[in-house]
Design a protein around this nucleic acid. Structure first.
Lengths: 346, 346
DNA sequence: AATAGAGACTTTACCGGTTTAGCAAGGGCT
DNA sequence: AGCCCTTGCTAAACCGGTAAAGTCTCTATT
């Protein structure tokens, strides 16, 4: 991969122009002591005049900071494109990286092995200074790998899943419980949940919490749960199979693990001639803009995904600068009622 | 940004283990002539045993290739998250980068000035070996900047917009024309288009093509066009204003510039008590999975966004390796009829 | 037999920074 | 006056590679 070399101005040019040595320029730009005010000023002026900024490549090689953070996402491209979650999350991460003039190295991987290998080579090759780890599973290998390598990482997921890594997480259990209670308060007693990928840790957490929350209702209450792959198609299939039963055997409310599946569910209900929310209530999760674009609008468990990403990035900087492991909960999603939920009419 | 240093194995270790000099290892790993088969093998074996791979940072500094390509995207986070287009595009780009063990440096910027500055600093700092430029506007400054810097770049957009840069583009004009002809063939004579951001070059192209296509129909045909910001909200507003008029003054078909706005349009129609497709036909653009999740399903101008991204990446590699400027059209979107289009009943 | 040339490596000089050791000048203290 | 600290800065080594020039050994040529 070669190309026209860019016109280069290096630290040497700056040093020459300021009449000092390379070392002095380096000291100035790293705000280290040992330079007089006057010299420092002269150096900065020279740099400004030459339009120079230290090369992050050279800096990295010389063994100081690495101003790139890594993120590997492991979901099929087709789903990713559709999931409003990730782009918003990434944009949140970016928003704080930019402040620190850091960049995000993004890679879509096909499996955890690939991700682990990538982390290792990124870290050993000093390509990244730290990493964001998402989509935790039970017995996830990544905390061990990060530990072994000494790779600064923050895990996006409940502490019970992230094996001692610093974690940033939403309280899914509480959120699920709130969702169930809300539907119960509306009068629903037959509640279903169309969950995400079963292998994912947060899915298990939600599944357990959902079970428990429904069980805590009166004995007559009934629960269904289906696992999917987060795709709209899967959401549609799950909804179809839940709604085919005759009324007493049919849920009157369905909670979805993301927005896409809820949208799909809405369309399945229409296709089956069921009215939303009269015949069946639907509750989405994440609350992207999509929820306000359907008819009826979708009630949803709503959270600030952008802010979530920003928190994750800030936490990562903490880890990189040596903070010990910690657990950082972000605000629990809150219920945002819209047009797709109502008391059951059946 | 400091942290526990990774346990490092360098080219020197590999050289020692293989009993050769650093130079030999470098020759082997760059597939350059001057080594015997036997030595080459010994070197690779040693590297494998030590788990070594050349540090891309050091390589970059030493003045050879830079194995990172840059992409700056300039749209508000809120929209980006929702646009299935970008993530799918990125995943297509990635798919090609991975083969060449290249990485993608992604940055969300707020304006073109910021983007231009970013490109300049990325390139001068040798952070990237080339760049993908998207969202061209009329009189876009980026071709000039890329030219001045000698930055290898590929422009995603019609050659008329990309000022001599190598471009990869979809033939929007033909696609729009096909969309209009299809609707006309169904019997529509009052056709509207809810377009994207007016400042964007491809929006202008579609707008002009739409006008012309409708004018080419019989004189009685009528056209409406509205510009938006690509958001679902804007799409909903535009649709609402188009559909409030009484039948003779109301379009019987609406073409949207992306999927999100079409989904929003669908819900507006429902909210206004209009049936789709009986009272109004809706045609989406891009054809993400979303189009199959609504009820009725959305007819759409469909293209392979993932493949598009892959083409762009491949083209960029061409530019980086010195290919002269060129124009690379990708397949024109094709009409995929579904449930949201039909002959007008009014 | 002398010479040239090719093949297989090694040496060495960078790339653009950081960092440590060292040094000269000035000030305070005894 | 002599000694020890600071302060402010420079010189040189180093990070992990690449690339050009140099060395050595063989074989082919004249």
């Amino acid at each position: 991969m070669t190309a026209t070399p860019p016109p280069r101005v290096t630290i040497k040019d700056v040093a020459a122009r300021a009449g000092v040595s390379k070392g002095a320029v380096s000291l100035a730009f790293n705000r280290k002591p040992g330079l007089s005010e006057a010299t420092r000023d002269r150096i900065f002026r020279a740099a400004r005049e030459l339009g120079w900024a230290p090369s992050s490549t050279a800096r990295t090689l010389a063994g100081s900071r690495v101003d790139v953070v890594g993120l590997a996402v492991c979901r099929p491209a087709r789903l990713l494109g559709l999931e409003p979650f990730y782009m918003e999350f990434i944009s949140g991460v970016e928003s704080v990286l930019v402040e620190r003039s850091c960049s995000l190295l993004l890679r879509l991987v096909r499996g955890q092995d690939e991700e682990v290998g990538l982390m290792e080579s990124w870290w050993r090759g000093r390509q990244i200074g730290g990493s964001i780890l998402v989509d935790f599973r039970a017995d996830d290998p990544r905390p061990a790998v990060a530990g072994r390598l000494g790779l600064p990482a923050v895990a996006v997921g409940h502490p019970s899943l992230t094996g001692g890594l610093t974690s940033v997480w939403t309280d899914d259990a509480t959120a699920v419980t709130e969702a169930v209670r809300y539907l119960a308060a509306l009068g629903h007693r037959r509640i279903a949940r169309v969950g995400g990928a079963a292998a994912l840790g947060h899915t298990s957490i939600r599944t357990a919490a959902f079970d428990e929350a429904v069980r805590a209702l009166e004995p007559a209450a009934r629960a269904w749960q289906v696992a999917t792959d987060f795709s709209g198609d899967a959401g549609a299939r799950a909804t179809r199979s839940l709604l085919t039963a005759a009324p007493p055997e049919r849920p009157t409310a369905i909670v979805y693990d993301n927005d896409i599946m809820a949208v799909a569910g809405l369309s399945v209900a229409a296709e089956m001639g069921l009215r939303v929310p009269e015949d069946v209530s639907l509750l989405a999760w994440d609350d992207s803009q999509l929820c306000r674009l359907t008819h009826p609008t979708l009630s949803a468990m709503s959270h600030d995904v952008h802010g979530f990403g920003a928190d994750v990035a800030r936490t990562l900087f903490g880890v990189i600068t040596g903070e010990g492991p910690g657990s950082h909960p972000v605000p629990t999603p809150v219920l945002t009622p819209r047009g797709s939920t109502a008391p059951p009419k059946v």
